[in-house]
Write a protein that binds this DNA or RNA. Sequence first.
RNA 1: GGAGAGAUGGUUGAGCGGUCGAAGGCACACGCUUGGAAAGCGUGCGUACGUGAAAGCGUACCGGGGGUUCGAAUCCCCCUCUCUCCGCCA
Length: 420
Amino acid sequence: MLDVRYIAENLEEVKTALANRSGVYDPDKVARLYNRKREILKEVEVMKATRNKESEQIAIKKKQKLDATEDIKRMKELGDKIKNLDEELATIEPELKEAVLSVPNIPHPSVPVGKEETDNVEIRKFSQPTTFDFEPKPHWEIGEKLGIIDAATGGKIAGARFTVMKGLGARLERSVYNFMLNTHTEAGYEEIFPPFMVNRESMYGTGQLPKFEEDAFSVKNNGFFLIPTAEVPVTNMLRGDIVDGETLPLKYCAYTACFRAEAGSAGRDTRGLIRQHQFNKVELVEFCKPEDSLDELEKLTASAENILKLLKLPYRVVALCTGDIGFSSAKTFDIEVWMPSYNRYVEISSCSDFMDYQARRMNIKYRENGKTAFVHTLNGSGLAVGRTVAAIIENYQQADGSVKVPDALVEYMGCEYIGK
RNA sequence: GGAGAGAUGGUUGAGCGGUCGAAGGCACACGCUUGGAAAGCGUGCGUACGUGAAAGCGUACCGGGGGUUCGAAUCCCCCUCUCUCCGCCA
């Protein structure tokens, strides 16, 4: 969330900065409620100061066995007034909180201005779209034929958007995330294996709640949520903490399964591994000092890109425009891998700098030279495993229906081809 | 799931309804001392909001929420979490 006071005191500036954002939010309401809260606080704090002082006097009188009934009566009246004001505060505060939580992050000035996906800007490209001297097939057909992707059984035992990976398919899945974790830990990210379920507070912390509750799966008998991304448990590890500035940046990588209801995606990407209710992902999460965050975003994006480079998969990096960046993000790069069956680039990672937006919401600070300040948080997929597997199968497919194993994965797979 | 115990600052650990934002120890920071260190001594050491140029001052916070009271870390109620024992389980 943004700083409430900043919104109230720089209302026009905030509105201008958010002008190119999509969504509904009401900074005016934030300012109005904040100003009212301030008025009440001013009034009630003076009253409380009086009460505290006089109550002390009552204590002294009582100790001296003097009569204090008059003072007690006065304080009782004051107490009622305080109670009334406190009650008004108690109604304003949740409203204010809700209002400020609904205001999205301010895009960084370097973010391209635009309304939608088509206004995103390609930043760089690695390699060229794969060419074939035969008619390439989509990964779900290749996978089914090789007996490594079984959508039908997934549907039988769970439902639509669930898949069973078998044999070398299951091994490919495992190889890919092991390869990712090894690569990232060698690059200095600390490996985390978090819970796949989290409590409600954690979902609020990273912003999945309250706005996007329908996108998440929840567990009926205890109120937990299945994590939609490792960002949720890993970022929340530091919720409410003040860390020593010298430990920054803190860089984590985590493999988890991810669970998404995919509400509102009916009919989209119904075949293959692109859009599942459960998928594997390796996530990169970082906490750093404010002055470093834009550089760190570049590095984090490079770390994610490195996986595709090592796998020799063609990709491009896109800077999302103001209308397309996520709600909490100040700046986002998407990494898109070439997917022959789609005949276009498909998102495989989204790397975002949230600045202090998440940190303020989660109250994560660092201390340096005796002062505390909010950290900056960043995260990015490094990468989505299912989509990587799909991209490997499609880009490495051979004329005979087999799939060549990328050089970087041969040692993990223990073979050079799937289906030979 | 059953029974019991507990939750206080970075940590440990006191705290009779009143001068308690909270003793003491440890850790940490600075200074003195020293050739240098250790020890010793001294000083400092929570967060947020508000106000102020600053020092400071005000308010709130002792797991979370509610209540009693002129006044709550302390009393009452609800919730959450942790620990011990039992059961079950990987």
